[in-house]
Design a protein around this nucleic acid. Structure first.
Length: 422
DNA sequence: TCTGGGGTCCTAGGACCC
DNA sequence: TCTGGGGTCCTAGGACCC
């Protein structure tokens, strides 16, 4: 049996935990650059504010209803997440941290001591007591059904935030009430295609022929069908898999047309990506850089391009990654464009920095690279200040907007720790 | 004027090998 | 006139998740 535990309105709740004066008031949290809404308190949801709506379009409505608005404060959310996950780890034999606010629990052996539903209530109570955050708990024999149970626990308040779907009859009852798009793994596109075939509810999907689904869709959707029937196809992954790529990208606070500003941004993203690579204890051989204008700009033609550079010996040295990124940037840079976003993607990972160089390769690894990078990372995490590369610039006026940022209640700085939350 | 930032997996098709 | 059968690797694109 599995449980899915997730925090209600996670980002919005993290903000109100430290502002009891805001309890009962509508609260929303914005994406980076104060772009669009990515979290809403229950009160804000009631006002009809949708997920991913652009802030500038909502401004009037938000003001009229006295909605409290926050920029995202990832340092705070990451810290609160860690507290919740630590509590869950104490309560279950194994957990899989699925996202910043969700975890799957392996419930093996739990029902020897207490009913599963009772266990769900204890989880809720303990997390509320220690963090003041509310969670929903869905319990079922497969992950997909546990997701569905969790969904139901949030939707119907008389469940008290816990739904146990051990019973197959209850499973079918809930499946019949669920739209196919609300199934985990079915998005808008698949929902539409399924709808055209007459499959509009979760129970119809569960009863569909697996061979038919496999032929017309993919093995992924076939697994979903089986999971809905109670046949577990997905296991708890207690150890996070090694990453296959690392992305570091941001939109700018305003449009950029100046090469120097773009160069600073690319250097900064490359440096950040290299830091993440080192926390993953990986070395990479491929660095891509991408730049683009805004697709919403109607005045000028949309331009988006990317360039990939490779290095013969895997590296985790910021200097190599910056050099590769800038080499790519030179190839795709076009003057007279109004750029809105740039980013770096690292790929082709190795877990060591050794490779057989070609006989005629001129490239040689840098001496003492590991010690220098370790020194850099240790110092930057010490809280005494930051060392950065000259190419990253000093003023950085392209840096993202965060005009409604809350204080660092639980951490010393409002910078996201390099610690990785998948 | 203003529209986020990360990830994963799967499939199809092309290039190439013997 | 007629031209096999079995692979691998890579990339782009599509779909999904939070």
């Amino acid at each position: 049996m599995y449980a899915l535990v997730d925090v209600n309105s996670f980002y919005a709740s993290c903000e109100t935990v430290f502002r009891p004066d805001l309890r009962g008031r509508p609260v929303v949290v914005l994406s980076n650059n104060d772009g669009c809404v990515i979290a809403r308190s229950a009160e804000a949801k009631k006002l009809g504010i949708n997920m991913a709506e652009p802030y500038f379009k909502l401004r009037g409505l938000l003001e009229r209803h006295g909605v409290v608005v926050f920029s995202s404060n990832y340092a705070l959310y990451a810290d609160m997440s860690m507290r919740v996950m630590t509590l869950l780890e104490e309560m279950a034999p194994a957990i899989e941290i699925y996202s910043i606010d969700e975890a799957f629990l392996n419930l093996t052996g739990i029902d020897n001591c207490v009913s599963l539903e009772q266990f769900g209530r204890e989880v809720r109570q303990r997390i509320a007591q220690c963090t003041k955050l509310g969670v929903g708990v869905g319990i079922a024999p497969t992950k997909t059904l546990a997701k569905l149970a969790n969904h139901a626990a949030k939707k119907w308040s008389r469940t008290g935030g816990v739904v146990d779907l051990s019973n197959p009859l209850r499973q079918r009852k809930l499946l019949a009430l669920t739209a196919v798009e609300d199934v985990w793994g079915v998005g808008r596109r698949l929902g539409k295609r399924l709808g055209a075939m007459g499959i509009t509810t979760a129970i119809q999907l569960a009863d569909a022929d697996t061979a038919f689904i496999r032929n017309n869709f993919s093995v992924v959707l076939e697994r979903t069908v089986r999971e809905l029937r109670g046949e577990a196809c997905l296991a708890i992954e207690a150890l996070p898999a090694t990453k296959q790529q690392i992305v570091s990208s941001r939109s700018f606070s305003h449009r950029i047309s100046d090469y120097q500003a773009m160069r600073e941004a690319v250097c900064s993203y490359a440096s950040r990506a290299a830091e993440k690579l080192r926390t993953e204890k990986q070395y990479c051989r491929q660095v891509s850089v991408f730049i683009r204008t805004s697709p919403h700009d109607t005045a000028s033609k949309y331009y988006a391009n990317q360039a990939t550079s490779r290095i013969p010996i895997p590296t985790q040295d910021t200097r190599d990654i910056i050099a590769l990124a800038l080499h790519g940037l030179e190839r795709i840079w076009q003057p007279d464009q109004r750029y809105i976003k740039a980013g770096i993607v690292l790929g082709d990972f190795f877990n060591h920095g050794v490779a057989q160089p070609g006989l005629f390769d001129e490239f040689r690894p840098r001496a003492n690279s590991d010690s220098l990078m370790t020194l850099l990372d240790t110092y930057n995490r010490s809280g005494r200040g930051k060392i950065w590369f000259a190419g990253q610039g000093v003023n950085q006026d392209w840096k993202m907007k965060r005009e409604m940022l809350s204080p660092a209640y639980t951490t010393r700085y409002n910078e996201c720790p390099v610690a990785n939350l998948r």
